[in-house]
Design a protein around this nucleic acid. Structure first.
Length: 382
RNA sequence: GCGGGUGUAGCCAAGUGGUUAAGGCACCGGAUUGUGGUUCCGGCAUUCGAGGGUUCGAUUCCCUUCAUCCGCC
C-alpha cells in the first residue's frame, strides 16, 4: 500500500474525473494546484488559499533547501506543520531550476552545481540530495529530480535530457526513504519530439511510479507544438495512475490538458499575474491597472464567487491599490485568479461526470485546436 | 530698487554653432506557464520660457522681455 490512492470515477473521451487520496485528504481531479515555492502561496494565508477551494498546493525543494534549509523545516515538524497547511502538498524536486537557473548552474552526470541567487554560494543537488530534501520536507507527493531542457532544443540535447532523466529516476527511487507516506512521481521528458516522449515513457513506466508527470512543456515552445506533444504523451501513461502536467496554468491549456487525459496542473500564473495587476476573466486577461479601469465601479468579474468579487471590491479601488503598490492588491487579485482556475477545474470535472465535456468547455480553446479535443466535425458524446 | 543664478516633456535632468535633442521617474500599452517576489519589451518633446537679432545653419552666441530663486538695500 503506497502513500496515495487514485480512483477514476468517470471518463469522457480521453478526459478523466477521479479522486486522489493522500495522507492529508482527498483531491478531486482534474485539479489545479497553486504554487507556494517558499512555503507560502505568495500574499495569501493558508485560510485564504483553502477558501479558494484549493485542495493541494506546491512548494519547491531547491528554494527551501537554500532558505531556510530542509533540516530546519524537518525540525519544525515538516512542511505541513511549518506553514500550517493541513491539506495535501506536493514538492517540486528542483529539476525545473536546472532549466530556469540555467546560467547559474553546472550540470554533470552526478548532479547539478548551483550558484545560489541569494548569496552566490555554490550548492550541489543530485537525485540523492533532492530526495533527502523532499523526505525532510515531508510533502504527500514528491517529484523525481529531472533535467528539463529549453523549449526548442535540438533533438540531440533533448535526447540527452531524456536519458539523464531516466538514469536519475532510478537513483531517486533508490534514495527515497519514505515511500509509505510520500509518493514519488516520475517525470516524462522529451521536449516536442514524439519519439523521445515514447522513449522516456517506456523507460519510466516499468519503474512503476505511483504517478507520472509530463515535464518539459510550456518552456518556450509554441502551442501548436505543445498540444500535439501532450496528446501523444498522455497515451503513453498508465490509465490507473494520476498524470500531472507540470507548470501549465493558462485556462485554455487546462481545458486542453484535461481533454487529453491530464489529472493535475500547477502554475505560478495566477499569483504572478496578480502581482502584476492582471486577472483572469471570461473575455480574456484583463490588466486591471489600465487607465480604462480608473473609474470603473464594477467588480472584477460579474458573477464570480471569489472572496474579492463577493465582497464587492470595485475595479477602480483595485486599480488604485495596484498603482499604489499596496500589498492588499496582491492578495485580492491572487484570490480571484486562483479561484478562477480552481472553479474552472471544478466545472470541467462536473462536465466529465455529466458526460458533457469537452463540448461544454470548447469555447476556452481556439477553434484551430478543437480537432485535438475530439471536437472536429463529429462530436462524440460520451 | 541693485547684484547674481536658473528657465529643455507632468516631474528630475544631460547636452552641442550643424543630419532623427541623452537618461531617470511618472504616464500609455504589451509580455510573464514545475516563481531568481521590485522583471522584460515597446510608446511618450518636429522642439529647448517668449519675442527679436547675428549666422548658410541657433536649444547653444547677442539684445529685449517674462517667470522664478538667492543675496543686499
Amino acid at each position: 500500500m503506497g502513500a496515495i490512492r487514485f480512483k477514476l470515477e468517470a471518463q469522457c473521451g480521453r478526459a478523466r474525473a477521479g479522486v486522489l487520496t493522500t495522507p492529508h485528504g482527498e483531491v478531486p481531479t482534474p485539479v489545479f494546484m497553486p504554487v507556494g515555492t517558499l512555503a507560502t502561496v505568495k500574499a495569501l494565508t493558508p485560510h485564504q488559499v483553502a477558501d479558494t477551494g484549493a485542495s493541494i498546493i506546491l512548494a519547491n525543494a531547491y528554494h527551501l533547501f537554500l532558505r531556510p534549509g530542509h533540516k530546519l523545516v524537518e525540525r519544525a515538524g515538516g512542511l505541513h506543520q511549518f506553514e500550517k497547511w493541513p491539506k495535501s502538498m506536493l514538492t517540486d524536486s528542483g529539476g525545473f531550476q536546472v532549466f530556469s537557473l540555467t546560467d547559474l548552474r553546472k550540470l554533470t552526470e552526478e548532479g547539478v552545481k548551483f550558484k545560489s541567487p541569494i548569496d552566490g554560494s555554490t550548492h550541489f543537488v543530485s537525485p540523492e540530495v533532492s530526495m533527502e530534501i523532499q523526505n525532510s520536507l515531508g510533502a504527500d507527493i514528491m517529484m523525481a529530480f529531472d533535467e528539463c531542457v529549453p523549449g526548442m532544443s535540438s533533438f540531440e540535447t533533448a535526447l540527452e535530457g531524456v536519458d539523464r532523466t531516466t538514469r536519475w529516476a532510478e537513483r531517486c527511487i533508490a534514495a527515497h526513504k519514505r515511500p509509505e507516506d510520500q509518493a514519488l512521481f516520475g517525470i516524462v521528458q522529451g521536449n516536442v519530439y514524439p519519439e523521445l516522449r515514447t522513449r522516456s515513457a517506456e523507460a519510466l513506466v516499468p519503474m512503476d511510479f505511483p504517478g507520472y508527470a509530463i515535464g518539459g512543456l510550456s518552456v518556450g515552445e509554441p502551442k501548436d507544438k505543445m498540444y500535439p506533444t501532450l496528446a501523444h504523451t498522455t497515451t503513453l501513461l498508465p490509465e490507473g495512475k494520476p498524470r500531472y502536467l507540470m507548470g501549465v496554468g493558462m485556462p485554455e491549456d487546462l481545458v486542453v490538458g484535461a481533454a487529453l487525459g491530464v489529472d493535475m496542473f500547477d502554475c505560478v500564473l495566477p499569483t504572478r499575474l496578480a502581482r502584476h495587476g492582471a486577472i483572469f476573466h471570461p473575455e480574456g486577461r484583463l490588466n486591471i491597472k489600465n487607465a480604462r479601469y480608473r473609474e470603473d465601479s464594477g467588480v472584477l468579474q460579474e458573477g464570480c464567487d471569489c472572496y474579492t468579487c463577493q465582497s464587492g471590491f470595485e475595479r477602480r479601488y483595485l486599480n488604485h491599490l495596484v498603482r499604489a503598490e499596496e500589498l492588499l492588491a496582491h492578495t485580492l487579485l491572487s484570490i480571484h485568479n486562483i479561484r478562477y482556475l480552481v472553479r474552472l477545474m471544478e466545472s470541467v470535472r462536473a462536465s466529465i461526470l455529466a458526460g458533457t465535456f469537452p463540448e461544454s468547455h470548447k469555447h476556452y480553446v481556439p477553434e484551430e485546436f478543437w480537432p485535438l479535443l475530439g471536437l472536429a466535425a463529429s462530436i462524440q458524446p460520451c
